[in-house]
């Protein structure tokens, strides 16, 4: 059984069908990149999986639990982590406070235990020396790495990354990319939404190209990006390259 199973997923916003029937399986340990133009539905899809938006039809099952299953909402939350384009760190908490908040309040850990985990995660993303700093004192790349550490601390089965490098300078993109490569090597299952083809190429093993709310093409990264089968993807890649 795949870690994530999506069947006939639909979502409308106003009169627009932003997701027009998505079927998608993601295996444990896989890194999938969702690419496509603005408005193609890639962020919507990710937000539906993350439980931030509600689908109008179809179903999403993560690790055997259906999204929308109110009785198991908590179990589901524990399994899915999400990182945003604009980092969304809590500005009133230090880096350590950001990472330990959910460990302490949701998982009910003692302060010392939560701190230990936080430091291990910050170490992993290479930013342990900033544990006491506040978000406003960090660069974009540093903030995004803290956001990743905050998510990882909860040991999600599935990590969703929404345009996590789009707000960053090229140098900082590399910082974040290195962290994601490391996580991929550790077998963390990730779905990343991006419009940067180089990033998709470097970070993912499989790519899904979304077009008008549907999956236009899906397959191994190299194959899909080097030999696109549809005119839409060729145009999209040509436009970008």
């Amino acid at each position: 059984m795949a870690l994530l199973e999506i069947q006939a997923l639909r979502r409308r916003i106003g009169g627009n069908e932003v997701l027009a029937g998505i079927d998608l399986d993601v295996e444990a340990g896989e890194v999938l990149a969702l690419i496509g133009r603005s408005g193609s539905g890639k962020s919507s899809l990710l937000r539906c999986i993350g439980g931030l938006d509600t689908a109008d039809g179809g179903r999403i099952v993560v690790d055997g639990i259906g999204i929308g299953d109110a009785a198991r909402k908590r179990d589901l939350r524990e399994r899915i982590g999400m990182v945003f384009q604009s980092f969304n760190l809590f500005p009133h908490l230090s880096v350590e406070g950001n990472v330990t908040l959910a460990l302490r309040k949701v998982r009910g850990m003692a302060k010392a235990e939560a701190r230990e985990i936080a430091h291990a995660m910050l170490e992993k993303v290479g930013i342990a020396d900033k544990a006491g700093a506040y978000p406003r004192a960090l660069s974009g790349g540093q903030m995004q790495r803290v956001a990743i550490a905050r998510s990882l601390a909860l040991q999600p089965r599935l990590l969703l990354l929404d345009e996590v490098t789009s707000a960053l300078d090229p140098e900082m993109v590399r910082e974040v990319q290195n962290v994601l490569t490391l996580l991929a090597a550790e077998g963390v299952t990730m779905i990343l939404v991006t419009h940067e083809i180089d990033f998709a190429r470097a970070a993912s093993r499989r790519v899904a190209f979304l077009h008008k709310g549907r999956i236009g093409e899906i397959g191994p990264t190299k194959q899909v990006l080097d030999t696109p089968a549809t005119a839409e993807l060729r145009e999209f890649l040509g436009f970008r390259l």
Binding site: L52, R77, N88, S151
Partner: peptide
């Protein structure tokens, strides 16, 4: 709103 969302995905 993004602060609410960040808190939501952490399970608060």
């Amino acid at each position: 709103t993004t602060q609410w969302e960040a808190a939501e995905v952490l399970g608060l």
